[in-house]
Design a protein around this nucleic acid. Sequence first.
DNA 1: CTGAAAGCGCTTACAG
DNA 2: CTGAAAGCGCTTACAG
Lengths: 354, 354
Amino acid sequence: MENKEEKQLVGVKEIARRANVSTATVDRVLNNRSGVSAKTKERILEIVRELDYKPNIMARRLASRKTLAFAVLIPGVSEETGYWAAPLNGVNKASGELKDFGITVDTYFFDQNDKSSFIANASQILDRKYDGVVLAPMFEDESVAFIRECEASGIPFVFINSDIEDQHNLCYIGPDLFQSGYLAGHLMHYILRAGQKALIVNISKEMDLHHHLLRKEEGFRKYFSEKKQDVTLLKTDIRKTDYASIRSELHRILDEHQVDVIFVTNSRVSSVARFLEENSKTDILLAGYDFLDENIRFLKREVVDFLICQKPQEQGYRGVMALYETLVHQHSLPREQFMPIDIITKENYVYYQN
Amino acid sequence: MENKEEKQLVGVKEIARRANVSTATVDRVLNNRSGVSAKTKERILEIVRELDYKPNIMARRLASRKTLAFAVLIPGVSEETGYWAAPLNGVNKASGELKDFGITVDTYFFDQNDKSSFIANASQILDRKYDGVVLAPMFEDESVAFIRECEASGIPFVFINSDIEDQHNLCYIGPDLFQSGYLAGHLMHYILRAGQKALIVNISKEMDLHHHLLRKEEGFRKYFSEKKQDVTLLKTDIRKTDYASIRSELHRILDEHQVDVIFVTNSRVSSVARFLEENSKTDILLAGYDFLDENIRFLKREVVDFLICQKPQEQGYRGVMALYETLVHQHSLPREQFMPIDIITKENYVYYQN
DNA sequence: CTGAAAGCGCTTACAG
DNA sequence: CTGAAAGCGCTTACAG
């Protein structure tokens, strides 16, 4: 009872009463605005501590006419890949939740095959003076140029989906590429016997994106070099993404070698699945990345055995939320937030969230 | 610009102005309280629609001195199993987020091996007239008796972790047991060759809990009956949970049969792992359930190969949130919310969230 | 059935 | 450096 009453009273008013000042002054201290004598400030802070005062966040946002605007810069959904629909979803979800709190989120899309579209969007964002930015820094040089400008303007930014090291980003939210490749190695080793062959397939046009695939390949190789050296690892880099190119390369390599498992280092696994199906080679174990419709289709038909997925939706959601937590609640966040490495199979995909 | 200004104005005041009534009357309609003439009500509703008015949830909760209290009834963390620490975590997380919104959450713990403790806690909850209840309805009869009373008092309730069919629960949030067993079958079949043997191990004392294990076993069996009939499935029910009992039973069965994989249908997999390790049988593929410290320890040492986990923390979190969504936001929720079936390995456990 | 007034806990000009 | 007053958008008694 005592406790309850005490709780009721703890607010700026009570603090003001105890400190013998007005609520305006308490407010100044609480929000650490200037214009309060050191003595008064200390007195108030002391009372705050004593009372273990926690501001009512709702009253705060209600009263404050302040409004924040965030910008999100990510690839658009292309017909080539639906991947970015998921992060966008997450961004929209966060945006919906934050609307009531006076925060707006604008999204800008660039073309993964066109650096200039990244640059154009970035410069628009700079013009509009946002309070925070979430971006997928796929193009390294262009991204660095952009965030230099952000820093100059004091605009905080967070990276999602891919990272650039040693930058002043608030945090990175995305996959640990190496580790996911390593996991794929583990999953596949169960089926491989001595002397059998595994094929690694990297499919991508853009050099910047190709780097990512190589990290996964490294992880995959690492597993076998550590745990199972009696299998042969083959690899192919396919630098064109149309099906005809993929088909001819797979033909070439699979005619030459008897392969038992195939690891595709990105969402392009559906093209490989199509090839295997068309050529009645579905007995080959096939694994790849991402919860996309076309991939799930092949998973259902048991052409694809596993998909690895790293919560793309959550990356978008958390990216926006990271800005919110930092700017509104002054929380500090871990610099690196690696997503879980989820394994999707025919049996669990219906329940996958994200 | 136009738009913005319009947005600014939309509030109870503007609605009241347009409808030529006071804000109190608008409030009555908005919250569907009685005491408004049908005509006035319709007029106001019309304006609300026209303006696409959305109430400011923060102002609402600030002004309303109303406060809700939820009760959560789950097993306590015992030395036998740390499983319930996770749902409790989720409950606490939700509770923290909702505190600002004037919602308190009280948690009651019962003993999984003692039905009377369930009954005692349930009756306390009933006495205290909560606005909503989250419970793990492990003991079917006792749970049904309890929720009958809740219904009589008009208290909504949600089930987590296990379900009782055909009740008037708001929703069920938890695993699909059958499907997780089926998935385990899939994971293990990769390694099994014709003529090899898989052993299913069910370890539990309480009959009510044993049912759950049997559902998982059914799923597991189903996989093999559909996809791989050339392996032999052995099984054992161990109805004592101390290590000595488990050891002697495993000794018996493994001496008799040459087993290649073992599927433990709950978190007791660590006891089996201990046995395998002590008896140098770690070459047997071992899978079980739940992200618990003791299980992870064996996962790291590669004694356990896979753990299946169904986001226990999220079950607690969502259970509480389900009440909040329903009671505060009047959202309606899907009756069944199955958790994802996560596969935990040595490679991805560090990133597992939940 | 309806309204005027006060209040939720905080912030914002404005005045001194 | 400080305070009185008004206000954020809603709800709550109270009076009629």
